[in-house]
Amino acid sequence: MIVLKDIRKVYATPSEEVIALDHVSLHIKAGQFCVLKGASGSGKSTILSLIAGLSKPNSGEVIVDGKQISKLPDTFSANFRRAHIGFIFQKFHLIPTLSVKENIIVPLIPENLTQEHMEERAQSAMEKFSIAHKASSIVKYLSGGEQQRVAIARALVNQPKIILADEPTANLDAKLSLELIAIFEMLKSEGVSIIVATHDPLFFELACVDSLIEMKNGAIIA
């Protein structure tokens, strides 16, 4: 369960103060598939990074799974993020010069697992998204679709309960976008909460989407 209570987020740039979120409250139940839509600059990404504890609100509370994530010290919010949240970014955001497998184990490194444990988790994530055959290829030479699967495998390698996706289909063609949606549906059926921030109309009419939240100028309008 994700709760945002009366959140205000202001970015201070040298020239001006940008109000990214203006008293936003939001409630997303566990296991829901939620889509954030809105024009560019309306604050969608900001909400995602607040939920992940990557940035902190100027006022208000962010509560994820009962934890007030905005008040956690860095080590704890990182641990929380690692254990509960998987991120899928617009441009995949893989580390281009590492191999597929090395990219996928990046979230596991701070856990200091045993070698076998690490192998096992990486292997199962790669197999789940059928990328295992490319395990040692360098990511930057992969096709867009393969890179996308690596990004998803990395997001899911810790078996998180929440998936945050920021414009996941922006760089994908229609076929790959549909594949991604299929994966989201599968994850939803496994009980994972999914929050997608997107412009892509593809998401707006999906049957599996539980709530569609529309934003404008840092506020929720629908």
């Binding site: 992940a52 990557l54 860095d74 080590t75 919010s77 990182a78 641990n79 993020r81 690692r82 254990a83 949240i85 991120f87 970014f89 955001h93 893989l94 580390i95 990046v106 979230p107 490194i109 701070p110 990395r154 997001a155 810790n158």
Partner: peptide
């Protein structure tokens, strides 16, 4: 910078 951002997003702490 991007790499550090990614690392943080996937759950690395400042300490890591």
């Amino acid at each position: 910078k991007k790499e550090i951002g990614i690392l943080k997003a996937v759950g690395w702490s400042m300490d890591d």
